[in-house]
Computed example of a mutant assay.
Amino acid sequence: MSDRLTIGLTGGIASGKSVVSAAFERLGVSVVDADTVAREIVAPGEPALDEIRARFGAHLIDDNGALKRRALREIVFDDAEARRDLEAITHPRIREALRIQRDAAESEYCILVVPLLAKSNMIDLVDRVLVIDAPESVQLERLMGRDDIDDALARKMIAAQEDRAERLAVAHDVLINTGPRKDIADLAAAFHAGYQRLARGEIADLPPLHLPG
């Protein structure tokens, strides 16, 4: 574990993790996003891409040598074994990259954005968990609009993730993200104030925070 306070930010797909993490970045907090790392480790020339080609086929590599991410996503969301095989290739590499970037952070505390934090073997990288929560109906609407997909695929993508109870079971803090984006900055600032005090040693712990409500 790093000496620096590390907050694990997680939530269901299309719950608004990126919007919330961007709000923390604007407050000067170092944010490391597992989704960004996941794209970096499968870039052309990376060993993980070679392993994916060997496991799933060369047809998933485009003419520029890049991974056809959407085609792979459709495969793994229809096949639990394929999803486990992909995770075996990518998760250890993602974990190590997150650890390195966490340890290099320079802000008072650091945020790791990890969608499958409770389910993966990465939860020990963080000291405290902030869950971004939204009802499934909101996730569906956002996901179909964001990715231009139909209801059936959106439901498969949600089902492939941790369920809401799993996420909330590991949460210290919960941010309910159902309102306008303009409210996110104020909610993030409220959490930020507490995390700063915790990082500075001004308090030994924080009571669980659930905002709004």
Rank of each mutant, 00 (worst) to 15 (best):
Met1Gly: 15
Arg4Trp: 09
Arg4Ile: 13
Leu5Met: 07
Thr10Tyr: 02
Gly12Cys: 10
Ile13Ser: 02
Ser15Tyr: 02
Gly16Ile: 08
Val19Cys: 07
Ala23Asp: 10
Arg26Thr: 04
Ala34Glu: 11
Val37Lys: 11
Arg39Met: 01
Arg39Glu: 05
Glu40Tyr: 07
Ile41Glu: 11
Ala43Arg: 13
Gly45Val: 09
Gly45Phe: 06
Ala48Val: 04
Asp50Gly: 07
Asp50Arg: 04
Arg53Asp: 00
Arg55Pro: 01
Ala66Leu: 12
Lys68Asp: 04
Lys68Pro: 07
Arg70Leu: 06
Phe77Lys: 09
Asp78Tyr: 03
Asp79Glu: 09
Glu81Ala: 15
Arg84Asn: 12
Asp85His: 12
Leu86Met: 12
Arg93Thr: 07
Arg93Asp: 08
Arg95Gln: 11
Glu96Arg: 14
Glu96Val: 12
Ala97His: 11
Arg99Asp: 13
Ala104Cys: 07
Ser107Trp: 09
Tyr109Trp: 11
Cys110Gln: 07
Val114Ile: 15
Val114Tyr: 04
Pro115Asn: 08
Leu117Ala: 09
Asp124Gly: 10
Asp127His: 05
Arg128Trp: 00
Val131Ser: 07
Val131Asn: 03
Ser137Asp: 15
Glu141Asp: 13
Leu143Ile: 08
Met144Val: 10
Asp148Gly: 00
Ile149Cys: 06
Ala152Ile: 12
Ala154Ile: 06
Lys156Ile: 03
Glu162Ile: 06
Arg164Val: 10
Leu175Gly: 07
Lys182Met: 07
Asp183Leu: 12
Asp186Tyr: 13
Leu187Met: 14
Tyr195Pro: 08
Tyr195Ile: 05
Gln196Ala: 04
Arg197Ile: 05
Leu198Gly: 09
Gly201Ile: 03
Ala204His: 03
Leu206Tyr: 06
Leu211His: 06
